[in-house]
């Protein structure tokens, strides 16, 4: 009976949406890259960069939205690097992505340590606060669950709409989808495969960085080492689960958030009997299960992982 109570509480759904928010950014980012035909395993490191740069910018006085901008630009920069390595140079997307993750993570940690050599507790910023929208926030149930989130959650939801609008309703989106399926056809139209792919990777990486920024600027108000903790990799699994569709990506992230929030509450109920690590494993195992469930019928973008050289084939 208690489990039903959990599912019916507004608190639970508020937590689910809060947990889902960085994943929404991350899955969307990975989706944009992969739709253009490039796997971006730099995601884990780009999350770190977004978290660190966004936080650092606010800490230096840029303001919260300034921090968002800085995080997005930093993400796009590492996206550009991944783009150059994998698109015109055609290097292994797996290895390059891992390289970007290592590079981005170590740059972030090094910068943080250099800027703040001796701090015992990480300095805090004035983070995004839950919105208080007149009328809506006061609605029963829906108010606290949905309308008392921070602006970044609404930004994430807006990004779902924006990405699906661009991908499905604009010529640019058509070109991006085509470049991930059949790059030579795009080339034949007189469009640049390189520019489309690099542009998509940069945009996708900027989105990923916002996922990281959410953690330091909304969920928490400080930067910690190791705070990303595999969230990026989870997004890579979820994007397959979402079969590369923005709407399903939102659904997947929310489902994941709900499972995770449920797991945390369950931990409080039966925590004494079962070690906490069992619960902490659940998100990772869940991602593996999600991946396995859809793996057989996954409809990968056809040119994913395949470098394109002009005049080939």
């Amino acid at each position: 009976m208690e489990y039903i109570d959990i599912l019916l509480s507004a608190n639970f759904w508020a937590a689910a949406i809060r947990i889902a928010t960085p994943l929404i950014f991350g899955v969307l980012g990975a989706l944009v890259c992969e739709r253009a035909g490039v796997l971006n395993l730099g995601i884990e490191g780009i999350f770190v960069v977004g978290a660190m740069c966004g936080w650092m910018a606010v800490w230096l006085g840029a303001g919260l939205w300034g921090g968002i901008l800085v995080a997005a630009l930093a993400g796009a920069f590492f996206g550009l690097l991944h783009g150059i390595l994998t698109v015109p140079l055609g290097l292994s997307q797996h290895v390059s992505g891992l390289g970007i993750t290592m590079f981005a993570t170590s740059v972030s940690y090094f910068t943080y340590r250099t800027a703040l050599p001796k701090v015992s507790s990480p300095p805090r910023i004035e983070a995004f606060q839950p919105l208080d929208i007149p009328v809506l926030s006061d609605l029963p149930f829906i108010g606290p669950a949905l309308f008392q989130q921070t602006s970044m959650t609404f930004l994430a939801l807006a990004m779902v709409l924006l990405v699906s609008y661009v991908l499905y309703r604009t010529p640019l989106g058509l070109a991006i989808r085509a470049v991930g399926d059949n790059p030579s056809a795009v080339e034949a139209q007189g469009l640049s495969v390189f520019a489309l792919r690099i542009g998509a990777i940069m945009a996708g990486s900027a989105l990923m960085a916002l996922g990281g920024a959410f953690l330091t600027m909304s969920a928490f108000d400080a930067f910690f080492f190791g705070m990303i903790n595999g969230r990026g990799w989870i997004c890579i699994a979820l994007v397959v689960f979402a079969s590369w569709r923005p709407g399903k990506a939102l659904l997947g992230a929310l489902l994941f958030g709900a499972f995770d929030a449920f797991q945390i509450r369950l931990q409080n109920e039966v925590g004494a009997v079962i070690p906490s690590q069992v619960f902490l494993m659940i998100p990772y195992l869940l991602s593996i299960v999600a991946l396995v469930l859809v793996a057989r019928k996954a409809d990968y973008p056809r040119a994913l992982l395949q470098p394109y050289f002009r005049g080939q084939r």
Binding site: L41, G230, A237, V240, M281, Y284, S287, L291, R296, A298
Partner: peptide, 15 residues
């Protein structure tokens, strides 16, 4: 089952 080993090996590290 055709599940990408990059993601599964990475996630298993955390587990």
């Amino acid at each position: 089952l055709g599940a990408d080993e990059v993601v599964t090996t990475l996630l298993l590290n955390f587990v």
